[in-house]
Write a protein that binds this DNA or RNA. Structure first.
Lengths: 218, 218
DNA sequence: AATTTAATTTGTCATTCGATAAATAAGCAA
DNA sequence: TTGCTTATTTATCGAATGACAAATTAAATT
């Protein structure tokens, strides 16, 4: 149990990080902490997890709310990958293939306990960044899918109707909710993510073909 | 502004409810309160909403956690309608019709702000009643749907496979998540609930026909 | 009206919360 | 080393929290 003190070049003392790096480290651990405990949890609890005292947090963040905003930013903004949209719009591949690839990488990005819990907590708080994220999903994912579907089916290029967007939302939400059941409720009975996605996309494509060709739409 | 005191048989003074009725009234208002503010909110805030002082709550409930348990019970257990399952199993009607009727009445029961927020809050807390509710959905809704689908398609009566249940879960979760978007995120762009349900069921039936007849399943 | 019983409020306690100021410790440059 | 700067801790404040006991009020019963 005696610690090997003879390590001259690397003293076991705490290495001092740059102020910005330390701040980022705090944010990253705050993501884990608030994701698990909720945003109502105490700054003292977070400080304990960080191994520091609670007032130190106020050297790096002016208030608890400011720290929470940094957590939102790190989760919502920085984990969004701009290449997702061109992937969906790549007409050299069948749409069903693109959708399978997209939902594979998209769920790789968001199907983790921290992301999903932060998302659900912030959604219940009704913060603005949550609404903006939903708009981003609609504009960069769902509407492109509908445009690509019309091309795939040889239909004229008209803007997606509201009820068409809702239809794609239901599939998207169903896949998202599979992640919630798997990672948060721990009630998913199949953990073969790619299989679940593939089946959902099969039904989505079949439904889209029926819906987009259907005669009477509002 | 003078109150009409001349109402001899019914004095405008506060009518005293029976102890049990008052308790139920507290629970009902606690549902609204905790649904909006979250379970971390204070008993003083609830008491203010009730128009009473905070210690009075402890005459009706031994602790805050006990009150929260009563809220769970009122939301999860008492709003479940046993007739939902026989409705799904009524083979005198086509399955698609039954599904449309079922999801119409099911969403009438759960698509309200209080129910959905209590559900999401309790899910994030990981309380046991949430897990039990998910099992109830699987056993009383999703698996019956798969059994009925096999009958509808003239397939042999074998128990549903895990990935088949997940497939129905995705549609079910998608419809549920439509309610979340509409009532909590307020980001739904079509509020024609029946239309959203009908489209989802069209895709579900098409997907089920493909999936249940498919050759290679695990 | 007098008495009993239940409902409700007042007052309070120990703890915990976010936040601030002052004191200390640790790294860095000369 | 010596001083200077930054990081971190100690101590503390006022407000809010869940819970309890005792006092008070209001309804019900006789």
């Amino acid at each position: 149990m005696t610690q090997p003190d003879i390590a001259p070049n690397k003293p076991p003392k705490r290495k001092r990080l740059s102020s910005e790096a330390r701040r980022q480290d705090f944010i990253n651990q705050a993501i884990e902490f608030f994701a698990e405990e909720g945003f109502e949890s105490s700054t003292r609890g977070l400080a304990k997890k960080l191994g520091v005292t609670q007032p130190l947090l106020y050297r790096y963040f002016p208030s608890k709310n400011n720290l929470i905003s940094e957590v939102y930013d790190a989760v919502y903004v920085k984990r969004w990958q701009p290449e997702w949209e061109p992937l969906l719009r790549d007409r050299s591949r069948p749409l069903a293939d693109r959708l399978n690839t997209f939902y594979k990488v998209y769920t790789d990005a968001i199907f983790n306990r921290e992301w999903m819990r932060i998302f659900l907590f912030s959604g219940l708080k009704g913060v603005d960044i949550n609404r903006r994220y939903m708009q981003l999903v609609r504009q960069r994912i769902l509407e492109p899918i509908l445009i690509e579907a019309r091309v795939e089916f040889g239909l004229p290029d008209v803007p997606p109707k509201h009820c068409e967007v809702e239809f794609v939302w239901v599939t998207h939400g169903g896949i998202f909710y599979y992640g919630v059941r798997d990672l948060i409720y721990e009630s998913a009975i199949s953990t073969d993510k790619d299989r679940v996605i593939a089946d959902a996309i099969t039904a989505l494509m079949a439904g889209l073909e029926i819906k987009l060709n259907g005669p009477k739409q509002t």
